[in-house]
């Protein structure tokens, strides 16, 4: 399948998954509804994480902005998701460059995945960017640093759950029979 069509399809699937299903799941840990913040898993940054290795930064930035604005328009948060997503779009190339042994332009036609990168580098890559994204988003949403603990707790709990969903998504939607070695 053409790489453009594939990415546009993935964009639609991930946004709909996020908006129609995950946004309606309110998670709380343990039985204490007052002390522990409620949170929702955010998996839509996965679209950015899975774009091909050799995508230029400006395209990543534009794609991140469009993705963020789309999610924003569904959740009435004008700009908060976009702001967080543009940040990770900008940092993505640097993080990948630091984690991979070869230059990024040598991975032509490939995309970041567990198969292409190995478990550990991929988890570090997606985990780092997801935590950064969640931290910025929740900081913008709460918009005061008076209870930093609340913010950090919410970020960590939400990022851990998002990671879980990301891994499940990858295991479900990656083709198992390898056509490319």
């Amino acid at each position: 399948m053409n790489v453009y069509i594939k990415n546009i399809l993935r964009f639609c699937i991930i946004v709909l998954l996020q908006v129609l299903i995950l946004n309606n799941i309110t998670l709380r840990w343990w039985s204490d509804p007052g002390g522990f913040p409620v949170f929702i898993p955010l998996i839509y940054p996965l679209f950015l994480l899975l774009m091909p290795f050799d995508t230029p930064v400006w395209l990543l930035l534009i794609a991140g902005f469009v993705l963020g604005i789309t999610v924003d328009s569904f959740t009435n948060t004008a700009g908060m998701h976009a702001c967080a997503t543009v940040l990770i779009a900008y940092l993505r190339t640097n993080v990948l460059g630091a984690l991979l042994p070869r230059n990024l332009s040598e991975y032509e036609g490939l995309q970041p995945s567990i198969k292409n990168m190995g478990w550990m580098p991929f988890l570090v890559y997606s985990g780092f960017l997801l935590i950064l994204h969640h931290l910025l988003f929740f900081a913008l949403e709460l918009w005061n640093l008076s209870n930093l603990g609340h913010l950090l707790l919410k970020t960590m709990a939400s990022a851990a759950t998002s990671m879980l969903f990301v891994i499940v998504y990858l295991l479900l939607f990656t083709r198992q029979d390898t056509s490319r070695a």
């Binding site: 534009i62 902005f65 543009v86």
Partner: peptide, 17 residues
Amino acid sequence: FNLILFLGLEVTCIVMI
């Protein structure tokens, strides 16, 4: 160019918020 685009988009977002 990338840095300028990045800053431009972030400023747009913050203005919208």
